[in-house]
């Protein structure tokens, strides 16, 4: 029950930050528009823009909850409920954003695998939520966290997709699935992308959970 309530209230909290929501929605659009003439580039940039938006939004949501979480733990909430609830909310918000941009791509571009294009957007958003949480857990201050996310996204955009550095970045799956969806490469690209996404999601979610389980631990005292 806690996870659902946390998810609902986190979504409501984000929804009230109207200016931030508008910027989160608009950011991927700029990425898309600057390379709109190149189908593959524009779609990959758009997906990375979604990833950047959602991870930054999640970072801020996680940081905003820092004061409340210890009290909620003391009242009886579980770490899984708190972390899971926020992940649910941010994944939901990311999925909506991905859905909207998929609709735009479907109208504006012609690609060999339209469904896989939607998959890129969705996976970018779904990987961004736990990644933003993990960065928020590791770097408690917003400025440091935002700069770290900027660095990761910049490296992801600029690194050679076949090199090790790009593969170690969280959104490499976007490039791989993009190659399948836009350049009509073979299915192995799709599977590589899906595997990378699954690993990224697991590492980020488990890492976030482990850090918060440590940080929000309550000392169990014996009763008098």
């Amino acid at each position: 029950m806690t996870a659902l309530v946390v998810a609902g209230l986190s979504a409501r909290e984000v929804g009230r930050r109207r200016a931030a929501v508008l910027l989160v929605i608009a950011l991927p659009l700029w990425f898309y528009l600057v390379r709109r003439d190149l189908t593959g580039q524009s779609i990959r940039m758009l997906a990375l823009g979604i990833a950047w938006s959602i991870s930054t939004l999640t970072l801020f949501v996680v940081n905003a909850s820092r004061g409340v979480d210890p009290r909620l733990r003391l009242t009886g909430a579980s770490v899984v409920g708190l972390v899971g609830g926020r992940l649910m909310a941010m994944s939901g918000a990311g999925s909506l954003l991905a859905l909207g941009y998929w609709a735009l791509i479907s109208l504006d571009q012609t690609v060999p695998h339209p469904l896989a294009t939607g998959l890129i957007m969705l996976l970018a958003a779904l990987a961004a939520a736990p990644f933003g949480s993990l960065v928020g857990a590791l770097l408690p201050r917003e400025l440091e966290g935002a700069l770290a996310l900027l660095s990761v996204c910049a490296v992801q955009m600029l690194a050679d997709p076949d090199g090790l550095v790009a593969k170690l970045m969280p959104f490499w799956s976007v490039r791989q699935i993009g190659t399948y969806a836009v350049d009509d490469a073979d299915l192995s690209f799709l599977w590589q992308g899906l595997t990378h996404f699954a690993l990224t999601w697991l590492i980020c979610a488990a890492g976030t959970l482990a850090i918060f389980a440590y940080r929000l631990r309550i000392v169990r005292y014996p009763e008098p």
């Binding site: 029950m1 806690t2 309530v5 209230l9 009290r71 909620l72 733990r73 009242t75 409920g81």
Partner: peptide, 9 residues
């Protein structure tokens, strides 16, 4: 109240 209530069940 809802949030803290949920934490307490």
């Amino acid at each position: 109240f809802t949030l803290f209530g949920a934490a307490a069940g």
